[in-house]
């Protein structure tokens, strides 16, 4: 903890020093950036932009979870469905997101709809793949014991597969949230909106207001990292025994 605080102090110190010494670069110091961010907040512009941006994030992300989790579990239970859909999901997962933005704009316009569709399309594969892997890896011994005790298919699903799946669902939620935020930012950058965070960034950048640009970027990145950290906490408290397994794969995959 001490080493971390020290390194943070060094980073901020170097930044400050750079902003003082290299004024030709026009790099604003930490104080100016915090000040700019504070002004954006007190004027309400940051919050209104954020609420616009988060609206599509929440809608697209929720839809991705509502469809992705059952889809993944179904794929794991019905193997042939899993084998059929898995390559399609993997292809979407490997795909560079930003490439489909022009196509999505043609299809969905430049309103909320396109953001929702974009965030949904790129969050679903991640969520479904993790849930699929969870359901697929249910130990056969558990299933066989249940069968030996004459459990019906339905009972096996509700009492064996689903409980085993729970930690995977939380992992998929964490990765999904991370990915949805990434997709949200890409959509903000590439689709000309009039009110979201992306507009705030582009507006400040066009006005050569570097302090605001840096402030908004820091804000967005901290928001993303913070959301994933919160999800990680929840995940660890739900399934502490899986900590070592789920620690990697943060979910940044734009």
């Amino acid at each position: 903890m001490k080493a971390r605080l020290a390194s943070l102090a060094v980073v901020i110190g170097v930044w400050w020093w750079l902003s003082l010494g290299a004024s030709s670069l026009g790099l604003p110091g930490p104080v100016q950036v915090v000040d700019a961010l504070g002004r954006l907040m007190s004027s309400g512009r940051l919050m209104s932009a954020l609420s616009v941006t988060l609206g599509s994030f929440a809608a697209g992300g929720t839809l991705a979870i509502v469809i992705g989790v059952p889809l993944g579990i179904f794929m794991g239970v019905r193997r042939s469905v899993g084998l059929a859909i898995d390559p399609v999901l993997t292809a979407l997962y490997v795909m560079p997101f930003s490439a489909v933005i022009p196509l999505f704009v043609l299809w969905f316009g430049i309103d909320e709809m396109v953001r929702l569709a974009f965030i949904f399309t790129f969050t679903v594969p991640q969520v479904a793949i993790v849930c699929y892997q969870g359901a697929k890896s249910t130990p056969t011994t558990l299933v066989e014991v249940a069968k030996t005790y004459l459990a019906t298919e339905r009972q096996i699903f509700w009492k064996v597969i689903l409980p085993y799946e729970v930690p995977f669902i939380f992992t998929s939620l964490r990765l999904g949230v991370g990915l949805a935020i990434q997709a949200m930012v890409v959509a903000e950058l590439l689709i000309q909106s009039v009110r979201g965070l992306g507009f705030l960034l582009q507006f400040a950048s066009a006005a050569f207001d570097l302090a605001t640009v840096l402030g908004v970027i820091l804000f967005i990145m901290l928001l993303g990292a913070g959301a994933v950290a919160v999800m990680q906490r929840i995940e660890t408290s739900v399934a502490p025994w899986r900590e070592g397994i789920s620690a990697d794969g943060g979910g940044s995959n734009v």
């Binding site: 980073v11 935020i181 930012v185 950058l189 640009v213 967005i220 990145m221 979910g251 940044s252």
Partner: peptide, 17 residues
């Protein structure tokens, strides 16, 4: 912490910078 923060945060925002 910095590497992790860059890993999970939306780095695409940095393009503007």
């Amino acid at each position: 912490p910095y590497v992790n923060a860059f890993y999970v945060s939306p780095v695409s925002a940095l393009t503007v910078l």
